[in-house]
Amino acid sequence: MKSLKYIGIAVLAGVGLLAASCDTIEEGDRKHEYTGPISSERMILLEDYTGVRCINCPTAAAEITRLQEFYGDNLIVVGVYPLQPTGLTMPYDPSRDLRTDVAQTWASAFAIEQFPMGMVNRQEVTGYAEWGGSIAEVISEGLNYVNLSVSASLPTDTTIAVNVEGSFVEDYEADGAVNMITMILEDSIVVPQLTGSGVNGGYVHNHVLRAVIGPEWGSQVASEAPARGTAFSASLTGSVNSGWRKNRLSVVVAIVNASSHEVIQAGIVHLGEE
């Protein structure tokens, strides 16, 4: 009867939709050894937004360790500890607070309110399961616009001096001026952290962002669309907090598009190498 005809049409449409728009991946086809490039002249900056009361953040840290082992010097990691939300960031020991105002400024700008979340070259905010793929995609692009050289020293107990020299090896045609952000990091900081097994008082935090030298969004080093051959250099001086261990400090320099925030090159230098 008529009703059956309409039912039949609908069922056929549904079955057809399902058959045409459903990819079933067989067991032997789920993963293939990755054969793409695993290194590049362009350094990758991974910023891990985290908090000491974030129970899943140690899992993200483990993923970072795996990525660092694999990509080596090609990957630069910064641990960013915003002020909020306090439910995830409030320190268990107020005297050992890893949070910074600059971290909160960035978190607010990128709308990061849950942890762990991160950014690879400040392109997209994603969970830690996506970071490996994002890094691979950047390396696969094979693009490098800037050669960068970074050096740093501690002329006094309370100051750090940073020298940066760079040059554009390709035309960079994107909109926006080019800025340089200079960060001071500290490794091996023991601060209580919430884990799946409870609060770990001996948890070791690495690559912790301690401060930014100069403006939070960086200082301009090149105007819009710098051409190949454009060179820049900078000498900066920043303050070193007495509570920081100088032999655990590093300086990370990120060359960024001031408009899109994309990190187009990064460099790192470790002070007090063992």
Binding site: S21, C22, D23, T24, A136
Partner: peptide, 10 residues
């Protein structure tokens, strides 16, 4: 490193 073969249509 392994690349996962992700279904585009689910």
């Amino acid at each position: 490193p392994y690349q996962l073969n992700l279904p585009e249509n689910v």
